[in-house]
Amino acid sequence: MDVRALEEADLELVCRHREQMFREAGRDDAVLQSMTVHFREWLRPRLRDRSYFGYVLSDAHQPVAGIGLMLIDWPPHPSHPVSDRRGYVLNVYVEPAYRRRGLARELMQLAEAEFARRGMQFAILHATDAGRDLYAGLGWSATTEMAKPIAG
């Protein structure tokens, strides 16, 4: 398996992986198609300026897994009292034919190493049911976060 950093040319790969990840989590196709249109426009400049970064795993030059990473502005917090940023993991996806081979674990280890290299002391992610056990096994724990859609 080859490892490489995400590139601008990976725009459609990241969009496809993100949409498929949410589809497998049970989200509605119509909502996902709309989300992907807007996500693509959001992602394009962030891939270009490298504020969205990450890794792709490939088998014989065919991408089979990926992970997105960001550094997000966050006030100092008891979990990171001297830092005003957090690492953020998103869009972890492994193609179905490549699952159960440790690729998601490898991506998460790459993410942690990259965050450490960039001086991050704390990172967060939002787990799907499918990923929860993997993340827990790597030392990630649930938080007290809650969410609510705001009607406008």
Rank of each mutant, 00 (worst) to 15 (best):
M1L: 07
D2L: 08
R4I: 05
R4H: 04
A5Q: 15
A5D: 15
E7G: 12
E8S: 12
A9N: 15
A9Q: 14
A9M: 07
A9E: 13
L11C: 06
E12D: 15
E12N: 14
V14L: 09
R16W: 13
H17M: 03
E19P: 00
Q20V: 00
Q20W: 00
F22M: 14
F22K: 08
E24D: 07
A25R: 04
D29E: 08
D29Q: 12
A30F: 05
A30L: 08
V31Y: 15
L32A: 03
Q33G: 15
S34Y: 07
M35K: 12
T36N: 04
T36M: 04
V37Y: 11
H38I: 00
R40C: 06
L43W: 10
R44G: 07
R44Q: 14
P45Y: 06
L47D: 06
L47Q: 04
L47S: 06
R48T: 11
R50W: 02
F53Y: 12
F53C: 13
G54S: 11
G54A: 05
G54Y: 06
G54E: 04
Y55C: 01
Y55D: 01
Y55Q: 01
S58T: 13
S58D: 08
D59R: 13
D59S: 12
H61D: 15
H61R: 13
H61Q: 15
H61E: 15
Q62M: 07
P63N: 04
V64H: 06
V64K: 05
A65G: 11
L69N: 03
L71D: 12
W74D: 13
P75Y: 11
P75S: 11
P75R: 09
H77K: 10
P78D: 04
S79Q: 09
H80P: 10
P81Q: 13
V82I: 03
S83Y: 07
Y88P: 11
Y88T: 00
V89Q: 06
V89C: 11
V89D: 09
L90E: 12
N91T: 07
N91S: 11
Y93G: 03
V94I: 03
V94S: 04
P96D: 10
P96W: 07
R99Q: 05
R100K: 09
R100M: 00
R100T: 06
R101Q: 14
R101P: 02
R101S: 01
G102W: 02
L103D: 01
A104W: 08
R105F: 00
R105D: 01
E106C: 08
E106N: 05
L107H: 08
L107Y: 07
M108P: 10
Q109W: 01
A111L: 02
A113F: 00
E114L: 00
E114P: 12
E114V: 05
F115N: 06
A116G: 07
R117T: 07
R117W: 00
G119E: 01
G119T: 03
M120W: 00
Q121K: 12
F122W: 14
A123N: 06
A123C: 13
H126N: 13
A127W: 06
A127I: 08
A127P: 11
T128G: 03
D129S: 11
A130H: 13
G131R: 10
R132Y: 10
Y135C: 03
Y135S: 05
A136N: 09
G137Q: 08
L138N: 12
L138P: 09
T143K: 05
M146R: 14
M146E: 12
A147M: 13
A147T: 15
A147S: 15
K148E: 09
P149F: 02
I150P: 12
A151G: 13
